[in-house]
């Protein structure tokens, strides 16, 4: 009996899942990475004939790549800042103040997610067409801003609500004004979660493709939009591969930071699971 308890059974199911998922998930990405560090890879060789960073130089020398990087970073920064500016006070209000229509307004942010997003984008685009916002920077900013609202309100609301009221009261008790309590107690306590929300909104905006393509193209060309045109029109495979690796950097940063947030389960609950 005692031996049975100590003996560890080989987890064949787990090994199976790990192997299959490794192939399905990791392998395609590995192929792209390999292409990005390849100088020559002719069919039908299984491995590239010549490795090298020639195409990194070539890609980084292209003006359209640099302008798309600048455009993507500018857009994502502007949208995230605007979103934080309008959403964080709103989140605080939802979490801490009482006002008429609080619940219905809170859930109104779900409206954008109850419809197929692309259909909604087309409907918005039809309105932007009349407002001459198609093909403009601020048109894309607006459409991406709407996409961040749910995240940037719901996650900080939860963060503010999880701050123990008595912590805030204790600060009032030792002489802090309400504004001081918010600055010295509430914000630092809610800080990490809010930072995660801001990061998510930045990354989400950075990779937002549909809105930028529908509203912005061809004048506003972000990195994902450029990537689409590379896929469609660029015969040199390595350009796309290098751009993919570049494009993945923000996601990698998000991956490092958001790991804890996502595995905690509260993330999935946010999606109604």
């Amino acid at each position: 009996m005692a031996r049975l308890l100590v003996e560890k059974r080989t987890d064949w199911v787990g090994i199976g899942f790990a192997a299959v998922l490794s192939i399905i998930i990791v392998f395609p990405l590995l192929v792209v990475f390999t292409w990005s560090v390849t100088n020559v890879w002719r069919y039908p060789s299984v491995i590239p004939q010549e490795f090298g960073l020639r195409f990194w130089q070539a890609t980084l020398a292209r003006a359209d790549v640099w302008s798309s990087i600048t455009m993507s970073l500018t857009l994502a920064t502007v949208v995230t800042l605007l979103s934080a500016l309008i959403c964080l006070p709103a989140a605080y209000a939802f979490a801490r103040l009482d006002f008429p229509g609080r619940s219905i307004l809170f859930f109104s942010f779900l409206a954008g997610h109850a419809f197929p997003k692309f259909g909604l984008l087309v409907a918005i685009a039809a309105i932007f067409l009349q407002l001459n916002l198609i093909g403009t920077f601020w048109g894309v900013v607006l459409i991406q801003l709407v996409g961040t609202l749910l995240f940037m309100i719901w996650i900080p609301v939860a963060a503010f609500q999880s701050v123990d009221r008595r912590m805030e009261e204790a600060a009032r008790d030792v002489g802090a004004s309400p504004a001081r309590v918010f600055w010295s107690i509430t914000l630092p306590q809610a800080g990490p979660t809010i930072a995660a929300a801001v990061l998510l909104s930045f990354v989400g905006t950075f990779y937002e493709t549909e809105g930028a393509w529908l509203i912005g193209a061809p004048q506003i060309r972000t990195m994902p939009v450029l990537m689409i045109s590379f896929i469609n029109n660029q015969p040199v495979i390595q350009y796309g591969a290098v751009l993919s690796v570049l494009l993945w950097i923000p996601s990698f940063v998000a991956l490092l930071f958001a790991r804890r947030v996502i595995s905690s389960g509260s993330f999935a609950r946010g999606f109604g699971a």
């Binding site: 395609p28 990405l29 192929v31 792209v32 990779y207 493709t209 896929i231 993945w248």
Partner: peptide, 8 residues
């Protein structure tokens, strides 16, 4: 991002 996935 789905665009990288498409390419891959």
């Amino acid at each position: 991002p789905s665009i990288i996935l498409s390419y891959a």
